[in-house]
Design a protein around this nucleic acid. Structure first.
Lengths: 144, 144
DNA sequence: TCCAGAACTTGACTCATTCCAGATCAGTGG
DNA sequence: CCACTGATCTGGAATGAGTCAAGTTCTGGA
């Protein structure tokens, strides 16, 4: 699951962003821990940098989100989470017990079902699907 | 859209809840303004009661949600909203500009698409679909 | 190398929501 | 109909996530 980025500096430039130590650290943190909330990203980034203010982490994450470098996921009842997988509009499964988030590929060929039947007047830009359930770990610990 | 409830007292009892002035007021507020956030519900409820603490509103809404009398909807970037339509697992369209929420009937007959293709290990209990777009009002004010 | 403006730090602040301790009320048993 | 018990409500403080503002530092183009 954890990914690393070949050339983070070039990637930031591609997206029209300035290259700073903070941004590189946050980017690699998001890439290596997909779906981590801001505080975990901050912790991971600080391990590389020594120090980094919380406000800066939010500022960086917002900048990344705005240009589409990362995607923000906000499951109900949980702080925002971030991921670098932005190329496709994939979806998420969220564990009701532990909050874990797992990527779910968009069911190709079934897209039509995501056109709402009665969205009178609404101009739909994106369909977002969230599956709620119990993840493997939580299920195991229950069963055993 | 606004609904009224025939016998609110009986309804509360059906769900095993005590009947209090606060609960009746909150229940009718939620029924009459679907998708309203807690503060609007509080305001509406206070119009009937004169006074009602914010904590009580949350307490009541949580109790209602727990037994399934109301459903909590939490679109990203917006405070929680509440609705009394709980019989079906319908979905929502959310306006990116003004945050308005509109009910969308579950696309019957197309349910299969809501079975994730690769939910390895996850025990799925519910699929939640959110459509993001621009509502009629916001679209009109842009166009004109 | 210099400079303007972008990015970062610090600290205060907002907003939605919860927690706590004490007062009050609903509903059951008598 | 009354008393009692525990659920519910009040008021106020507290929490967690995230934003804002002012000042300092750093990036990248000239």
């Amino acid at each position: 699951m954890p990914q690393s980025i070949a050339d983070p500096t070039a990637l930031l430039r591609d997206y029209g962003l300035r290259v700073t130590a903070a941004r590189l650290a946050v980017l690699s943190a998001v890439a290596s821990q997909p779906h981590a909330p801001a505080d975990e990203i901050a912790t991971a980034a600080r391990e590389h940098l020594g120090a980094l203010s919380t406000a800066a982490v939010y500022e960086v994450l917002n900048a990344f989100t705005e240009v589409g470098l990362v995607r923000r996921v906000e499951p109900a009842g949980s702080p925002a989470r971030y991921e670098t997988r932005t190329a496709d509009n994939h979806h998420h499964a969220v564990c009701r017990r532990c909050g874990a988030v797992r990527d779910i590929d968009c069911a190709v060929g079934l897209a039509p079902c995501l056109e709402p039947s009665n969205a009178i007047g609404f101009v739909i830009e994106q369909a977002e699907v969230t599956w709620w359930g119990i993840c493997v770990n939580c299920n195991d610990s229950t069963t055993s």
